[in-house]
Design a protein around this nucleic acid. Structure first.
Lengths: 217, 217
DNA sequence: ACCTGAACACCGTTCAAGT
DNA sequence: ACCTGAACACCGTTCAAGT
């Protein structure tokens, strides 16, 4: 009966964006394992069920966070030097992934068909193509570069097993494995930045080298 | 008072080993997300709380599964050919990881100081050293190889974003990104075995090439 | 359109029993 | 030594309200 009654508008308390930001707060302060409908809602001073008006569920929430992070990636200007350009793309991906270190596993691990994820892919393909790679090869190279990048970063945020960093040397020394014992001092130290540079540089070198080989027929 | 009374021995229903095996059954049939104290106990016809007599909690249970899988890795015989040997180690790692495809993320992702994990590390270091790598370099190379291996396998079991496989070409075509559109047909196909060979071979080639460079001073 | 109360079917884990 | 009943403090999610 009173359908025409224009009630107070009441600006909405929540939005997908504000929920994503609150989730990032939870992740930054308590880790990704602490993310839940209830914890995120608490950070917003709201009931957990309210989130369902803006988000499809927990899984969709985590997708939204991942997408948000990927969207923040800033692609570097092309310089014309393939090595420099690939390096710059990798570096900006790393920068973005490490802006919220606790959230990194999301970005590195979640399968996302999102358009946000496509821009960096396109950028890498462009560089490879201009460097002389045939399209089919470029895709294989892209995948190899991505694998190295992801594997390296996963390790850096220490969610992957590479057995170094704070492995106490004792375990290694007690292993009875000679090559391991000899390398123990090196395995015990881990310079994140240097390790990233090393792995990415090696991968890029390999790719560019292979392009040259193919071009020479 | 009746302490001397030797009651029926009653062979225990559970063991750490049997629990691990039941967990693998759950993982194989319902995925790693379905693992829980209750689901594993159900597979054993036992109450969930009983598991706590053999396992420290859910996290320790998953560690035990990871360790069990790593322990099953069979290292190949050395042939003297570094390339062949590295390839064989990578292949046996992949074989083991794919024996329980749903469990692969565990093996690829869980930080484990376990001695089970050390044997393959030692094997790679040995090959690199015999190929002429200085110990410090060998550790960097090991980490790079591992990163590529893990990144590739994560993608293969489709827990990592590389944007191919069943990405419908439509999304790519609609992206408006030229290099992506051109590569769409290649991005849409993904031969697991071939992709693995390609990435691992590229990484191994890069490492062996760098060893040669260093040896030449 | 957006938020919540009541409610449901789950979790992992502790601890005091029981045998 | 090993297993469980009772119990606790959690989960994600649905649905029928309320405004």
């Amino acid at each position: 009966m009173t359908e025409t009654r224009r009630g107070r508008p009441r600006t909405p308390l929540l939005s997908r964006e504000s929920i994503v930001e609150a989730t990032l707060q939870v992740i930054d302060s308590e880790g990704v394992a602490a993310v839940g409908m209830r914890s995120v809602a608490r950070a917003l001073g709201v009931d957990a069920k309210s989130l369902y008006n803006h988000v499809d569920g927990k899984d969709d929430l985590l997708d939204a966070v991942t997408e948000h992070l990927l969207a923040g990636l800033v692609l570097p200007e092309r310089t014309g030097d393939a090595r420099r350009d690939l390096h710059a793309i990798a570096a900006s991906f790393r920068d973005q992934a490490l802006r919220h270190p606790q959230a990194a596993p999301l970005v590195l691990t979640r399968q996302l068909a999102s358009s946000q994820a496509l821009a960096p892919i396109n950028a890498v393909l462009e560089v490879l193509k201009d460097a002389g790679a045939e399209t089919g090869d470029a895709v294989h190279m892209l995948r190899m570069l991505l694998a190295t990048l992801i594997g390296t970063l996963l390790r850096e945020v220490s969610a992957a097993p590479t057995f170094g960093s704070n492995d106490r040397e004792g375990t290694l020394a007690a292993s009875g494995l000679p090559a391991l014992i000899e390398a123990a001092p090196h395995l015990a130290r881990f310079d994140r930045e240097a390790e990233f540079e090393y792995a990415v540089d090696l991968a890029i070198t390999a790719v560019l080298h292979r392009i040259d080989l193919r071009r020479a027929r």
